[in-house]
Design a protein around this nucleic acid. Sequence first.
DNA 1: TCTAAAAGTCAAGTATATATTACTTAAAAT
DNA 2: ATTTTAAGTAATATATACTTGACTTTTAGA
Lengths: 71, 71
Amino acid sequence: MAKNLALKLARVQKDLTQKDLAEIVGVSRQTINAIEKGEYNPTIKLCRKLCRVLGKSLDELFGEDDENEED
Amino acid sequence: MAKNLALKLARVQKDLTQKDLAEIVGVSRQTINAIEKGEYNPTIKLCRKLCRVLGKSLDELFGEDDENEED
DNA sequence: TCTAAAAGTCAAGTATATATTACTTAAAAT
DNA sequence: ATTTTAAGTAATATATACTTGACTTTTAGA
């Protein structure tokens, strides 16, 4: 999993902390942190919630990993 | 989780069985079946693979559940 | 500087995505 | 009718998403 810069950016654009965003979508702060750091692989349901809250599409926030790898 | 009609449709358009698709993306046939039936909530990584194989975007295959519910 | 909030990290637990095996049902051939 | 392939379903097992609690480090203000 690669870092999710797009997510971090969209969050900051909305002036939300990891904690804020976590509370809004109903997960722990550590989960948001891990996703931004690319430490895991969220479920599509959580991705959809994040997209809704941040006003972005799945493709914008979770589309093909910018760079290279993907197994 | 709602049924994923879009996935089934995209699969059939490519003339793939659940088994075929499962082998291509490297999961079990039951996993594909469960996703199409809406019985669970795949990870974004698997969603991306399915999109790549089926030539569709995340938004097309996994975007806002057509209908209503979503928690 | 000092302090506090935000971000990062770790360990141990719980929930659930996914695997495996195996059986049943449906559809489509002959 | 029978066979074959695809789809549906269920039980048990494993990997991993996600939680909770606690601690450290970074950032930004006062």
